[in-house]
Structure formats: C-alpha cells, structure tokens
C-alpha cells in the first residue's frame, strides 16, 4: 500500500463539487446518517456502501477447496453470497436514505472495503464514519481493521462518531468513561441544528422514540 499522502495542516481544499460522504456500514450506519443530518444539514450527501468481496470469495474458495465435488456453478455458495450481498447493500442504502430524509446520492461499491472507501472519499468535504466498538468499554480498540485503515489513510477530513444502533442506548445514556483523560473542547458538541422527527418504518426495528439527537463527536 502506498503511504497516505499527508494533507497540509491547513486541510484539504474542497472543490466546487465537494460533497459529504457518509460511509454506510452494517449495524453502525444510523449514527453516521444522524451525524450527517446534524453536521452537514445543507451539504450534498453521498451515501457510500462497500460490499466486502473477501466474504463471497471465502465462500467460493471453501467450495472450490472441496476436492472432487464437480463444482456445479449453480451450487457455488460464493455466487449466492454475491447475489445476496447485492440485495443486502441495496436495502441498507435505501434504509439509510430514508433515515436521512432528503435527496442524496447512493454509491454501491464492492471490493476491498477500506481501499474503496478511501478512494471514494478522496477530495470529499468530509467523510463521516462510525467507530466499531461499544461505548461501554473505553479503550483503543474501538476501530475495526477497515475503519482503522480509513481513518489512517483518508485524504479528507474525517468525522468519527460513536455508533448508536437502532436499539442502542441514546448517546446521553452512555456511561462516562472514568479512566479517560479529561475530554477536550470537542466533548461539548454543537447543539443539533435542527432536531429531527423519527422516520416511519425504519427497517423492521421498533420505531425510536422522538428525541433531539446529541451526536458524540470525537
């Protein structure tokens, strides 16, 4: 991997077409969409999902590794996983767009997740992504492999938010990690610019109660 091109300290220069890219990942995406609503209320939003090719490839190779089975293509679990992941990604993006509640661009990529995200977000005004860990455990391991890579190598500013799953506790309910150093100024995020009303029928989960949202910014 070629090393990241470090941006000048002054930050990147967003071009006229600079957009805010929201990286939609399974389970942590609602927090990213909420963050986009709060922190980028007037920007053009791109919802980006990248399907992990390695997952389908692992299934395909596990099948290919079964010696002598004839390997009829219609039985290849890798092919079935590819089809399933296409549907799953489309569903996820649709749910995310619904939660965002305003026109946006949907990008459905597949490949090596972290690299595709870095490439797709190059030149963006902002990339919004979520931590992977649960907030009840403070510590350095709140970034998964892919998120770690994206945070390290993204060529645009990154907003990293705490995940808040559809059923997760409200951001304010998280225990304050006692053994962390005193939070800096960022621990007091801006008030939401416009509190949002809950959207109807978000997937199959029970509707979230209406509440003003305080995103945890990092």
């Amino acid at each position: 991997m070629p090393g990241p091109t470090p941006d000048p300290p002054s930050g990147p220069t967003p071009g006229p077409a600079a957009k805010v890219v929201v990286w939609i990942t399974e389970s942590t995406w609602p927090a990213c969409v909420d963050a986009a609503r709060v922190w980028a209320p007037h920007d053009d939003i791109v919802l980006l999902h990248v399907s992990d090719d390695e997952v389908a490839a692992a299934a395909h190779h596990a099948y290919a590794g079964l010696l002598g089975r004839g390997h009829r293509p219609e039985r290849d679990p890798g092919a079935r996983l590819e089809a399933l992941s296409g549907t799953a990604a489309a569903d996820l993006l649709e749910a995310a767009a619904h939660r965002l509640g305003r026109p946006c661009e949907l990008l459905d990529h597949h490949g090596r997740v972290e690299r595709r995200v870095v490439r797709a977000a190059a030149g963006a005004k902002l990339l919004i992504c979520a931590r992977d860990g649960d907030r009840t455990r403070p510590g350095p391991h709140s970034l998964g492999r892919a998120t770690r890579f994206v945070v390290d190598h993204a060529r645009c500013p990154v907003l990293l938010v705490w995940p808040r799953g559809p059923e997760g506790p409200d951001a304010t309910e998280f225990p304050e990690p006692a053994d962390l150093p005193e939070p800096a100024d960022l621990s007091e995020p801006h008030e939401p610019l416009e509190p949002f009303e809950p959207l109807e029928g978000e997937g199959s989960d029970p509707p979230a109660p209406p509440r003003p949202h305080r995103p945890g910014a990092v």
């Binding site: 990942t25 399974e26 389970s27 992990d52 390695e54 997952v55 692992a58 299934a59 596990a62 099948y63 079964l66 039985r75 679990p77 079935r80 996983l81 399933l84 992941s85 549907t87 799953a88 569903d91 799953g165 559809p166 997937g203």
Partner: peptide, 28 residues
C-alpha cells in the same frame, strides 16, 4: 455446511443488520 449453510448464515447476518464477515468465516 459449505454449500447449503453458508448462504443462509450470510442472509441471517444481513437480516439482523450484523456484519457478515465473522459469521461467514466461522461457517467456512
């Protein structure tokens, strides 16, 4: 497990909104 269960496991992870990788790798 390889041929018949792996797609089901992937679909299950997608249904509950979990990341598929650990579960598919576990099956293989």
């Amino acid at each position: 497990t390889v041929v018949l269960l792996t797609p089901v496991v992937f679909a299950t992870a997608a249904r509950v909104g979990a990341r598929p990788r650990p579960h598919v790798y576990a099956t293989t």
